[in-house]
Design a protein around this nucleic acid. Sequence first.
DNA 1: CGAGCGATTGAAAAGACTCAACCACCGTGG
DNA 2: CCACGGTGGTTGAGTCTTTTCAATCGCTCG
Lengths: 229, 229
Amino acid sequence: MLEKSHKFVTCQNCKGREHSLLNHFCSDELEHLNSHRACNYYKKHQAVFLEGSFPRGVYCINQGLVKIFKRGDEGKEQIIHIAKAGEIVGFRAMFTEEPYKVGAEALEDCTICFIGKEDFLNLMESNPVLRKGIIKELSKELADRADFITNMAQKSVRERLAFTMLILLDVFDNAPINLSREDLANFVGTATETLIRLLKDFKDEGIIEIQTRKIHVIDRQRLLSIAGK
Amino acid sequence: MLEKSHKFVTCQNCKGREHSLLNHFCSDELEHLNSHRACNYYKKHQAVFLEGSFPRGVYCINQGLVKIFKRGDEGKEQIIHIAKAGEIVGFRAMFTEEPYKVGAEALEDCTICFIGKEDFLNLMESNPVLRKGIIKELSKELADRADFITNMAQKSVRERLAFTMLILLDVFDNAPINLSREDLANFVGTATETLIRLLKDFKDEGIIEIQTRKIHVIDRQRLLSIAGK
DNA sequence: CGAGCGATTGAAAAGACTCAACCACCGTGG
DNA sequence: CCACGGTGGTTGAGTCTTTTCAATCGCTCG
């Protein structure tokens, strides 16, 4: 279905937009935005943009999940963020005028709209609300990452796993978490084997249920207390 | 000296400004900026702003170093950044309209100018170059933090120490690094004891020289290769 | 039905942390 | 001027977490 449906996506009918940075537009602006965008279909595992390449615009997720990650020296991925419908990805590097320092890849089949750099910058120039929204968003993410850094530095893998699962609960809208063990490990920042052992612990403690790949969170409260704070 | 000198600080004579976000102003703008600012003296260890308090403006460092840190659940600090002369600190939380998620504290005696929230936002509103500079800065820091996260997740303490020392080499303008062992450990993200042991290793390997508190980097190249990348 | 990749388990080793004790430097007050 | 107390720095030993490596299992897709 999704393979074709991207042809019918518009800003006007975009579900994600309501909760996004682009939610305040009047219908004229919306039409303008809509006419400067092109929707594409991305297959699971397909790259949205590559670490090291130059930004040509921004990507607005209409449907699906996209992981934002960085490769360490040994090639191991560290997942920095998982973006869902409504989120715009790839605009940070655009502002720095440097190549992407992170990569983005579809975690599942996605429909994603592209807005060219010029168009997007013009939009920002003429639209103070969008501008403020973006600045606010950048600032929020900075705070999130300060948190992330602190967690990485001070928490055990078990605590970080709990913390990560809480994030994923939100990303997956309380539906079962559906990620490869490797991606999960790369988000938590641990070895895949360690992650698997800890998942088993959580299962034994009745915090989660596991269906091969899918993880159901049973006891959210418990996760909160393990994650600390 | 410094105790009095803050009374004579102006935007016009501020050394740091040249390399800062506020470097492109014409003399009229500079005068305007200057008249909306107040310079204060901060003693070593004095708080610039507190985690949890509400931003009332921004702090522009005229002289000295300021650590930006976050407390983990057990109260241990994680240093996120060390800001030096010319840097503006505390504007991120201002944009989110939420309390500070990090704290800031003088690492040495400092002179720091304060610009009120309203004034600073007005300045941004009327000055597109400043605005773009800020957005660019926020984006750059996001990329830096993605790096930081990846380092934390994937590098050994030894590698992180090398990486951190390279950052500090810049912060201290290639002068000896002068931080408490605890602060250093809290920047690297490790226990103080572990940090001390690793410093000794570096010393034994001829990479650094230690004078009680001060650390001289002898072999920058070596640090680069240990840090990886 | 077989190949192959992702998931899982086990055992051993390494890295880092904790705790406890000790040292050294610095400023204070007698 | 020196003894004192305190903080920050250093060292050692033991422990625990986490990683690594190797091997096995079991889906899923062609």
